[in-house]
Nucleic acid binder design. Structure first.
Lengths: 342, 342
DNA sequence: CTGTTAGCGCGTTCAA
DNA sequence: TTGAACGCGCTAACAG
């Protein structure tokens, strides 16, 4: 089937291609009747403009890109929804792209910027360190959402924004809460990778809290899940291994709620009661933390606020009403039913 | 900053643009040394080819699109992962696009087909009915994954494929399992929308099972969640309303696991024991069903098989080794801890 | 093996 | 208000 193009439409209407183009792009300088006739033919023929060709030419195009590391991660769902709503309100198109675990999100952004006419780029999740070299090549404002403020050592903080919680601090808060309950042998489920990441910071917060409270860090209580930190299966397996190891502990702090849910199940299977025998804490404050049995004690990230602020910020920067900023939201310790005094 | 193009690279290397193009696209008819030199310059300059321009020209481009209704839904995660792996193995690029709830997935596909050079389109989720008119405009093979076989009344079944479970049948299976346990007052959590959908079919299966077993369908036991069927909150609220209504029932069947998790929490809050006081069943067989407490009785969809078969099928159709097919996988009733004899 | 050149489909001049 | 012509950046065909 021969692809139908703008030329074909122009022919059928007996007008020039530019007139069709004008009709398509809601230009004002066109006779309403001509436009109406053209639109009718377009509908009849089912003609759809080729976006690649448009992107090639177009200069304006209000479009911002959201790059999500692991878009299938439910963690970002509420953030994405808000971002979409805010973009729509501003009449901006939103390109949502997921980034594979093995891909470099900045590379993807670079490519996207060439392909579309972007006005701004938002990164959700992903690495907390990036090469200043690459980052500099991005010609439009960049905001990191949920990723802390030390993205690049070399790059001036004036050249990018961040909106997030202070992961290390919040993690320390959670650990100190557990310590406050009287726990001394606190195990942690973290991630094995040694790439700099949010997760790394949470682990650091844990270590800091212990040390600040005169509790010796026991390597045997630090357990690393295999790759994915948003897998219940991983939480289950790693917790089971911890239990089977015979290591003594009275609390388990998981650096994600999803891991914690797996942990709860592992304890249930082992006949270990939560919180009577062991306390379990999560991190993130995802939906599941409010609906699992028992409810999880967790550290809620204000994702809605983060997302809303991110959008506001990027629009402000685009409109040059503001420079780059680094906004830190406080997390909220939510005490559920999964932790108790020792 | 002046965008750097292929012409610029050609100049700097002292070669023609087509040579650069050849280097870029891994053509064989190019001197390895020339290629090496070009690639070096490309790296130095940070040049990135413009995808829009490429799409405009390229004729081959092995690319298939996956359109997911509600990509943030964890339900599709395992399917997407498999699809990506299979595509990579075949050296196909995979374009993943999420479709908003209010968008028509076929419209999005139409647009995408114009923009990229697609070889095939896969729909995951979404409506189970589509206008034959629009569907016909898609020039490449279309496969619906997880959506049953009656996509369009007018369209020949030879013009599209489906890979799914028989939602009505499996739903009936689950309902009959509950009936077999001795339950007669079986409530159901379904979706309110009256658009034809998978969910609708599950509700029909429930009704069929009751009627086939001489149990009168009680409208008061059919509860509709507000919009999203993958929201624990919705499951919780709707179950709570059901409990508060004082309606008597001994089992609750939720048409998604996520709803069921919310239901479990609602019962826990009401001091109603599962499964001693009431049985709870889900549908889908998502991860959470294996990790919640108690484990859910659910109807597992073989998502991995569905996804793998979908990919195999679409490649076969593209290679003209096969025509369109309608593959139905059996679901698997997984008996958890959430259901018991009445 | 390489360079030149003709479009891909569209938006945007510019002149009418 | 409209149409003709140009070129966005690239790939592919062709000629060398």
């Amino acid at each position: 089937m021969a692809e139908i193009t703008i030329v074909e439409i122009a022919k059928r209407c007996g007008v020039g291609v530019s007139t069709v183009s004008r009709a398509l792009n809601n230009h004002t300088d066109i006779n309403p009747e001509t436009k109406k006739r053209i639109m009718e033919v377009i509908k009849e023929t089912g003609y759809i403009p080729n976006n690649s060709a448009r992107n090639l030419k177009r200069t304006d195009a209000k479009c911002i890109a959201v790059l999500v590391k692991g878009i299938t991660n439910p963690f970002f769902t509420p953030m994405i929804e808000i971002a979409e709503a805010e973009a729509e309100e501003r009449k901006y198109a939103l390109v949502l792209r997921h980034v594979e675990a093995y891909e470099d999100e900045v590379d993807v952004a670079l490519e996207l910027e060439k392909e579309k006419r972007l006005r701004g780029i938002i990164f959700m999740g992903g690495s907390s360190k990036h090469s200043s070299h690459k980052l500099k090549q991005l010609n439009v404002p960049v905001v990191f959402a949920t990723v802390g403020s030390d993205i690049s050592e070399k790059l001036s903080k004036n050249s990018y924004s961040t909106v997030s919680v202070d992961d290390k601090l919040e993690s320390r808060k959670m650990t100190e809460y557990l310590i406050g309950l009287g726990h001394k042998r606190i195990a942690i489920l973290s991630e094995g990778s040694d790439k700099p990441s949010i997760v790394k910071q949470r682990l650091e917060g844990y270590v800091e809290a212990l040390e600040a409270n005169g509790i010796k860090v026991d390597e045997k209580l630090i357990r690393y899940v295999d790759r994915r930190i948003y897998s219940m299966e991983n939480g289950y397996k790693t917790t089971k291994a911890l239990i089977d190891s015979g290591e003594e502990f009275t609390a388990l702090y998981c650096i994600s709620d999803v891991l914690a849910v797996g942990a709860l199940r592992a304890f249930a299977d082992a006949g270990i009661r939560v919180p009577e025998d062991v306390s379990v804490a999560g991190f993130d404050g995802q939906d599941i933390s409010r609906f699992c049995v028992p409810r999880l004690t967790t550290l809620r990230q204000p994702l809605e606020d983060i997302s809303r602020e991110t959008m506001k910020l990027i629009f402000n920067i685009i409109d040059e009403e503001s420079g780059h900023k680094h906004i830190v939201f406080p997390g909220e310790l939510i005490v559920g039913e999964s932790t108790a005094k020792r």
